[in-house]
Design a protein around this nucleic acid. Structure first.
Length: 487
RNA sequence: GCGCCGGUAGCUCAAUUGGCAGAGCAUUUGACUCUUAAUCAACAGGUUCCGGGUUCAAGUCCCGGCCGGCGCACCA
């Protein structure tokens, strides 16, 4: 990006001294724009309140009218007009020459102009900082995605919806945390640097610790650590944190994203479904005050209870014939081939059923729904189903055609866990790139005894997308991952 | 990683069949005592993403690259 000539000129000549000499280090701020609009709503046109305030913010618009000047100032709460008069305002000429985007601190009386705009009549003011770049087009803001994402600080001023969506994120995180605390979950932190990246099927980022002369991987999930804390006696734990997956970037995938993971001793997956739907619907109530919203122009409801349907049921309905993990393998692969899915030779019936589900059902699931009873083949950390050992007590919730959460009755048997890891290793040997590695420390932890426990993983970014009605994950991440510019 | 689309002034966008690179806003200068995306006047502002090629002539056509958007794949 090339700076406009005026910037180089200002920076190197006239403003060099002022930047260092006259810019204050502090401002005695005591009022916000939004509160002023409310508090002084009763002021009549042309009326003066007699109340002096100190406000601060950025000059967004500036309209000079001879010996008067009107500026629209925005702070974190909203906007209020600044009304400057040559006869009243100290340094009026300089005020009228402020740049759009400059930060100002203003002292003055709260008044309403003859034309009805609530204003701070400026008696004294100071420029707190100068904006050397503008904040986009007055009408259109900034539309260039590259500029918006690489310089979110400018986007936030140019496009108010950006501020709204990122604020929603903050409110969602706060609500999630408070609801977990209220349910007696203890917030914990587990390692991001791991010798083995486990807990999910994903390619990790690799790094190296110099002093230990060891390779480490950024976590792809905190799952195994959290269950070790349950073994250690923390009966209800959660972690709200960043995980890293070295995979494709898309409107629904960022290489680093935020996940809630939560484990409750003595619960099974049904209990966890109860908790999850109440959590998500509760967050919607906390942030939006309703469970009934529109997502991308289509009605969407967070309302509980969410339907619970097995993967086999949903898939059977979608394909028009009864299928399950016990359907002959050849039949499943044939049906996948009909749908254009390339079948990997390492896929057993469980994986095939899951693939068939994804191809036939997933994108159709609009309102929240639990898909339950996943094949054991694709669920190496989930406990086998009590009535069918080829299935697990696992659920995923889907909303607007995407996975939102994943949970299960945790596999607590160290012997079975070893078998599952070994099955994964066998898949790796057959060329499947993303499988779990055997984690001996984790198996040893299970050998100390994990009580019956249910776990949950919930994608916070995806939840925020629903709440904020955003279709691109980058709109709910302040600084999404972008390719660095090469120069 | 693959496919499609895009990149022109600080920002938002034009530019006919390949024929002098333009506008609005911002910036600079001036006018204006109640403006509301103020208005009016004037000045200035360009490596048309980068590198090649075709052509009398390339923002426009061709090849390669960079960055981005969308879709697919992977995945949450």
């Amino acid at each position: 990006m090339v700076d406009p000539p005026r910037i180089a000129y200002r920076a190197w000549t006239e403003s060099f001294g002022r930047l260092f000499v006259t810019t204050p280090y502090q401002f005695a701020h005591n009022a916000f724009a939004d509160a002023l609009q409310t508090t002084f709503a009763h002021l009549n046109d042309g009326e003066e309140s007699g109340v002096m305030v100190n406000v601060a913010g950025r000059v967004m618009l500036l309209r000079r009218q001879g010996k008067l000047a009107f500026a629209t100032m925005r702070d974190s709460s909203g906007e209020v007009q600044l009304f400057a008069l040559a006869a009243v305002t100290e340094g009026f000429e300089d005020f009228a020459k402020l740049h759009l985007g400059d930060w100002v601190g203003v002292s003055g009386e709260v008044v309403r102009t003859k034309r009805g705009e609530l204003s701070v009549k400026v008696t004294s003011w100071v420029r707190l900082a100068e904006a050397l770049h503008n904040f986009g087009d007055k009408w259109a803001g900034i539309t260039d995605y590259d500029l918006r994402y690489r310089h979110r600080e400018a986007d936030l001023w140019a496009n108010p919806v950006t501020r709204t969506s990122l604020s929603r994120r903050s409110e969602v995180v706060r609500s999630v945390r408070e609801r977990c605390w209220a349910a007696d979950f203890v917030e914990v932190e587990t390692p991001i640097l791991n010798a083995i990246a486990s807990g999910s099927d994903a390619r990790p980022f690799a790094t190296h610790h110099n002093a230990l002369d060891s390779d480490f991987y950024l976590r792809i999930a905190p799952e195994l650590w959290l269950k070790r804390l349950v073994v250690g006696g923390f009966e209800r734990v959660f972690e709200l944190g960043r995980v890293f997956r070295n995979e494709g970037v898309s409107p629904r995938h960022n290489p680093e994203f935020t996940m809630l993971e939560l484990y409750a001793a003595y619960w099974n997956y049904s209990d966890m479904m109860d908790f999850t739907e109440e959590l998500v619907a509760g967050v919607a109530m906390d942030v939006l005050g309703t469970t009934e919203v529109e997502y991308q122009g289509r009605p969407f409801s967070f309302a509980t209870p969410w339907p619970r349907r097995t993967m086999a049921e949903l898939t059977s309905e979608a394909v028009g014939e009864d299928v399950s993990v016990h359907t002959p393998h050849e039949r499943l692969t044939a049906m996948l081939a009909e749908r254009g899915v390339e079948v990997h030779r390492a896929w057993g019936p469980g994986r095939c059923l899951a693939e068939l589900f994804e191809a036939a059902c997933e994108s159709e699931l609009w309102n929240p729904i639990y898909v339950t009873d996943f094949p054991v083949e694709i669920s190496p950390l989930a406990r086998r189903h009590q009535t069918d050992s080829d299935l697990t007590e696992r659920f995923e919730s889907y909303a607007v055609g995407r996975e939102l959460s994943n949970g299960f009755s945790e596999l607590i048997d160290p012997l079975d866990q070893r078998v599952r890891f070994e099955d994964q290793a066998r898949l790796a040997a057959e060329g499947e790139p993303e499988t779990m590695h055997i984690d001996e420390d984790y198996i040893k932890a299970l050998e100390w005894g994990l009580p019956p426990t249910a776990g949950l993983g919930l994608g916070i970014d995806r939840l925020v997308m629903l709440i904020a009605d955003e279709s691109n994950i980058r709109e709910v991440i302040a600084f999404p991952t972008l390719k660095p510019l090469s120069d």
